[in-house]
Computed example of a mutant assay.
Amino acid sequence: MSRRRSARPAPRPLRPAAERIVDKRDGQWFVRPITGATSVKTYTCPGCHAPITPATPHMVVWPVEKALLSADAIDERRHWHSACWTRRH
């Protein structure tokens, strides 16, 4: 019996972007930068309420501690323009 080899190698999993913890006046936040290459959807920035279009580098932000009624803190993640997040208190 002959064994078939796949013509294509298995795709490598994307390496998650490095996230860091940032202190703001209202608590600690996980911040993950998103490159334009991995951004494929349109989001609304909570800082300026303008759209973040696909292929635009931006930040994904969520609190370290979950809110009282949330199942998990990551459920509260939001996409911000990098400048809007930086300007935020």
Rank of each mutant, 00 (worst) to 15 (best):
R8P: 00
R8T: 13
P9N: 13
P9I: 09
P11S: 04
P11F: 03
P11W: 01
L14C: 03
P16R: 14
P16E: 02
P16W: 09
A17P: 04
V22E: 08
D26T: 12
D26K: 09
Q28E: 13
W29P: 00
R32Q: 09
R32I: 02
P33M: 08
P33K: 07
I34F: 02
G36I: 00
T38N: 12
S39Y: 04
V40K: 06
T42A: 08
T42P: 02
Y43M: 05
C45Y: 00
C45D: 00
P46W: 11
G47L: 08
H49G: 04
A50E: 15
I52T: 07
I52D: 05
T53Y: 11
A55L: 09
A55W: 07
T56Q: 06
T56F: 08
T56H: 06
H58P: 00
H58T: 03
M59R: 04
V60A: 09
V61C: 00
P63Y: 02
K66M: 10
L68Q: 12
L68R: 13
L69F: 15
S70C: 12
A73W: 01
I74G: 01
R78M: 10
H81S: 03
H81P: 05
C84K: 05
W85Y: 11
R87K: 15
R87C: 09
H89V: 11
